[in-house]
Design a protein around this nucleic acid. Structure first.
Length: 796
DNA sequence: ACACCTCGAGTTCC
DNA sequence: CTCGAGGTGT
């Protein structure tokens, strides 16, 4: 390293120290972290590296020389007889193999092997709890003092608060304990206690906690122990400090076992491991379990198990050479908001999305994060230019957790939902009581047309392979396709021409003979895929149309009960409402869709292009009892004509004609209250009321006539059972399992409730399995499912 | 009227 | 996967 770099290094070191000091102050003294742990660790490591490369820059008061900042006033200071350690950290590196990714752990292990001249040494391994480190002092078996770690040398006396933590024993159990014993461990808040606390705080309009770690730290720093007592804190022991007047076992793992006997909680995940392979296996095992643990952890800790080995390894400055913290990739990161944009969905819903400066979060680069809706943006007060903390919720979907207000640049403005659609310029409107703003442009809006097309072609809908985002963009932008029906009119030449124009627009690609052939092959495949999609099923087609509120499940219900598209598209809302899971909203949506001229045209065009359904059938016989006069009267919605009166009239007069023929006098004789009778008479007197009623009556009779007389419906094996699938099945795809279960009459639901008949759990089953166990719902494994399918499918 | 249960819709990245 | 909201049963 040449001298000429020293001035730069000096400036940087000073800058880092200043930043680290400030972060320490926020983290330890104010309990209000301003930067994420990873940022902090990275800065500290950079400073350490600088000081190592330029020893002349190291100062006695550098943050690398201690663990944290000075304790704040309010609590008495406690000097630790034996300093509380800090550990070196190992992070995952870039690489393809475990050896590469865990280089730092490998070096740690190799150093021990070499120094001790031992192969595959034994380690005590444990999860690294994310809480607050404390030390507990017991004299003659009695808890006398508890302190926070502070800077490692001196902490705060929080005895009174720690006494309120039930996990901490006030007297040691068993026997054989030393006269003086210091036990070190972590005070944490369990996730469920954290959730419960925030839930309560929200209801009472009080301040919520940012995370469980803050919950633990903040609670211990309460000056009034009665407040601490109300927070549910937990404690796990993981080390000992001063020991006098007694002996401990010779290894760390045995000491932990001993502590457990003396009454201290020790994490059940604590284990021993041999050599590097053992350490890495443990890291993976805990990593997989991480989300299911009752508390937050940010890694695992490896400690050389035998104390003699530890003594030989010794320390480098403050950190032991016989232990290391192996950290998981950060799940939270800070980044900046570069823009807040609006995305228009298939239904016109306008969703704000934060465009972020790229960051690595839990192993992937995140550049976008949904902000859900305008309310959410207002709640978080996210602004363009803000520094925010992002997290991958449920390990997948990035979300903005909160803004760091201290780092907000000057002259920012609160974000507001624009008044008009950024794509088509139509007004954005919000329905009363709805969270979402919607583009009012309908199919005028190119964004909605594009989303509708992608939905139409989706795997679970018409299943046209090769219709992706880029392709749909071109199809719509160049005007080749306006509605899904246009897809079926496209020719090979259309595709090739369109591709040429698209390539031209997105940056030119030189036209070669070979590329010409590739393009032709691509277009041929697409035409073939479109052609193949014409052979479909009725539920897929109904789902593909993108009718509001009609998902896969409702589409299946419609097909199962009504049998054919011809019937479905002619049924008025009143009739649709008798179907299970179809209420007034959904019924109106379906009937409304098919009533629109434009939609009728599209459906007709699709049918004309040759779409056929392999599964059209007759309406279900089960409709027979449900389609009666009551359905029509319900539709009329006459004032004072409640369910009771409706039922009465339906039973007595059975049809609309008979009801009209009988007249008001007979209605009253039959038992109808006179007020209801008067209202009904008035209603029916108007032709504009009567006409839709007659039409619905006709539709109903048409439907009844279409129901086959002989009921051949065999009782399905799993009729009425609700099944939930979770995890990965080895021999079946989830879709296939679902299909086969439904073929046997079962309903396959997405979430577990007490109505669930049984849950089928595959590999790596998650929260649904926990829920099932909680509710006492039977859990089947894959073998049981296969046996069930074999048993019943064989018979069918 | 209220609470519970499903379903629909939207979202990210590889 | 999560949230919101429609549907249904108490």
């Amino acid at each position: 390293m040449s001298q000429s770099h020293a001035p730069d290094a000096r400036t940087r070191a000073a800058e880092l120290r200043e930043k680290i000091e400030r972060a320490n102050h926020c983290y330890y003294v104010l309990d209000e972290p301003e930067i994420t742990d990873l940022d902090y660790d990275l800065m500290l490591r950079e400073l350490e590296a600088l000081e190592q490369a330029h020893p002349e820059l190291a100062t006695p008061d550098s943050p690398t020389r201690r663990v944290g900042a000075k304790a704040k006033g309010g609590f008495a200071e406690v000097r630790h007889a034996i300093p509380m350690l800090s550990l070196n950290n190992a992070f995952e590196q870039e690489g393809d193999t475990d050896r590469e990714r865990f280089r730092e752990v490998a070096e740690f292990e190799r150093r021990i092997e070499q120094t001790l001249d031992r192969r595959t040494p034994v380690f005590s391994v444990e999860p690294k709890l994310d809480g607050l480190a404390i030390s507990l002092r017991y004299e003659d078996g009695v808890f006398v003092q508890g302190a926070t770690r502070g800077d490692g040398e001196t902490g705060e006396d929080v005895t009174a608060n720690l006494r309120t933590v039930r996990a901490i024993p006030l007297h040691l159990r068993g026997e054989g304990w030393p006269r003086v014993l210091e036990v070190r461990g972590e005070v944490i808040m369990l996730r469920k206690d954290f959730e419960a606390f925030n839930e309560r705080a929200r209801i009472h309009g009080e301040k919520t906690l940012a995370n469980p770690r803050n919950g633990a730290a903040g609670s211990l720093r309460q000056l009034d122990p009665s407040i601490t007592a109300k927070r549910k804190l937990s404690f796990f022991a993981y080390a000992v400090g001063e020991v006098r007047g007694g002996e401990l076992p010779l290894t760390h793992s045995k000491t932990l076992a001993q502590l457990r006997e003396w009454g201290f909680p020790v994490s059940p995940e604590v284990d021993t491991a041999r050599g590097l392979d053992g350490l890495i296996a443990y890291y993976h095992r805990i990593g997989e379990k991480r989300d299911r643990l009752p508390y937050d952890i940010d890694g695992v800790v490896y400690k050389l198990d035998d104390y003699e080995g530890q003594r030989v390894m010794g320390f480098v400055s403050r950190a032991p050479r016989w232990a290391i913290a192996h950290k998981f990739p950060a799940q939270e990161q800070t980044t900046t908001v570069e823009a807040i944009e609006i995305q228009i969905g298939r239904t016109g819903a306008a969703t704000p999305v934060a465009r972020l400066a790229p960051v690595q979060v839990a192993g992937v680069t995140v550049t976008n994060a949904t902000l859900h809706n305008a309310d959410q943006v207002a709640r978080l007060d996210v602004r363009v230019g803000d520094t925010v903390i992002v997290r991958r919720a449920g390990d997948v979907i990035p979300e903005v957790v909160r803004v760091i207000p201290e780092q907000r640049p000057a002259h920012t403005h609160p974000w507001h939902m624009p008044s008009h659609c950024p794509v088509c310029g139509s007004a954005l409107l919000r329905e009363e009581g709805e969270a979402a703003w919607r583009c009012s442009g309908g199919l005028i809006c190119a964004a909605q047309r594009k989303e509708a097309l992608i939905h139409f072609a989706a795997r679970r809908a018409m299943d046209i392979e090769g219709i992706g985002e880029r392709f749909v963009d071109a199809l719509v932008d160049f005007g080749y396709v306006h509605t899904p029906a246009d897809l079926y009119k496209l020719t090979l030449d259309d595709f090739l021409e369109m591709k040429r124009r698209a390539d031209e627009r997105d940056g030119t690609t030189p036209e070669t003979v070979k590329q010409g052939k590739v393009a032709t092959k691509w277009a041929e495949n697409l035409i073939e895929a479109i052609e193949a999609s014409k052979q479909t099923t009725l539920p897929r087609f109904l789902f593909a149309l993108g009718i509001m509120h009609i998902g896969e499940s409702t589409a299946k219900t419609l097909a199962a009960w009504l049998g054919s598209l011809a019937v479905i598209r002619r049924m008025p809302a009143a009739v649709l409402r008798v179907l299970p899971d179809v209420g007034s909203e959904v019924a109106a949506s379906i009937a409304g869709f098919f009533a629109q001229k434009g939609n009728q045209k599209v459906v007709d065009a699709l049918l004309a292009s040759g779409i056929t359904f392999s599964d059209e059938t007759h309406p279900s016989p089960k409709l027979r009892q449900q389609l009666d006069l009551a359905v029509l009267l319900d539709m009329a919605g006459v004032n004072k004509l409640g369910p009771k009166s409706t039922k009465l009239l339906a039973e007595r007069f059975t049809t609309l004609d008979k009801l009209l023929a009988a007249g008001p006098a007979h209605w009253v004789t039959a038992g109808l209250p006179s007020a209801a009778s008067t209202n009904l008479e008035g209603f029916l007197a108007h032709e504009k009321n009567l006409k839709p009623l007659r039409e619905a009556d006709e539709a109903m009779r048409e439907l009844l006539a279409a129901i086959p007389q002989a009921s051949t419906a065999a009782e399905a094996a799993l009729d009425g059972q609700t099944v939930v699938l979770t995890g990965t099945l080895a021999s079946l795809s989830r879709d296939e399992a679902k299909e086969r279960l439904e073929a046997l009459g079962a309903k396959v639901a997405g979430s577990v409730s007490k109505k669930t008949s049984f849950v089928v759990a595959g590999e790596a089953a998650g929260s649904k399995l926990d829920k099932a166990q909680e509710l006492g719902v039977p859990v089947w494994d894959e073998a049981q499912l296969l046996a069930l399918l074999a048993r019943h499918e064989g018979g069918a």
